[in-house]
Amino acid sequence: MTEPVLEVSHISKSCGGRLILDDVSLSLNKGELKVLIGPSGGGKSTLLQCIHFLQTPDAGEIILEGRPASDMGRRHINVFRRQIGMIFQDFNLFDHLTAEHNVAIALRKVKKQSRAQALNRAREELARVGLADKGDLYPAQLSGGQKQRVSIARALAMDPKVMLLDEPTSALDPELIGEVLKVIADLSQSGMTMLMATHQIGFARHLTSEIIFMEAGRITESGPPAELLSTCGLSRAAGFCAKLNQLMGRG
């Protein structure tokens, strides 16, 4: 296989004397979707935020297409960031802008595109997530699932090389989860490279090449879903998933 799109190499992070990430490494090849699972507080979100430098790792290296982030220097971290899309649990749409302008504003201000060009692209991306008719609505007028799809469109418009998704469906009620998962599945099938933290095991197992189980800041187990989840409750990961499935029903 060619060199990975994203490589996370020996990342550690501690906060207030507590080790949150302990020597975490993983890599993503082009078009791959890997899934992070594990109990809350296990370091999944912190890992994603460190990859994006929303938090600065204490040690280790993030390498994007063979280029270490440390080469870019602190001043160019914004250039590094815009190549990676980030989806948040609670959407984080810009409340004062319509759906269309939520998608367009980064194109205009960061990529310096003209207003017309940015809005065109925004409409395309909104259509891609099934929201062609919602462009003029403000976040407060959208459902949770629609908001999350706008935030996916917003990330996609920047042409990211990798997408990081931090529990994208955790803040949604069960009826709305499906529409977001469908967009993510389509995206994966179209060849987007993604790393997703989620509790939707049932969904993830059909799409992902590898499930990574994180607990107490470490990757304790990882492997193809069939392998990892079929150890009949012997492993911690299989046990955790069995519990989730009990709660949510098999997906």
Partner: peptide, 16 residues
């Protein structure tokens, strides 16, 4: 804080 994070994640500078 989330909107601030989202903007930074899109590559906005602190000032932008």
């Amino acid at each position: 804080r989330g909107q601030f994070q989202a903007a930074r994640a899109l590559g906005f500078t602190r000032f932008q």
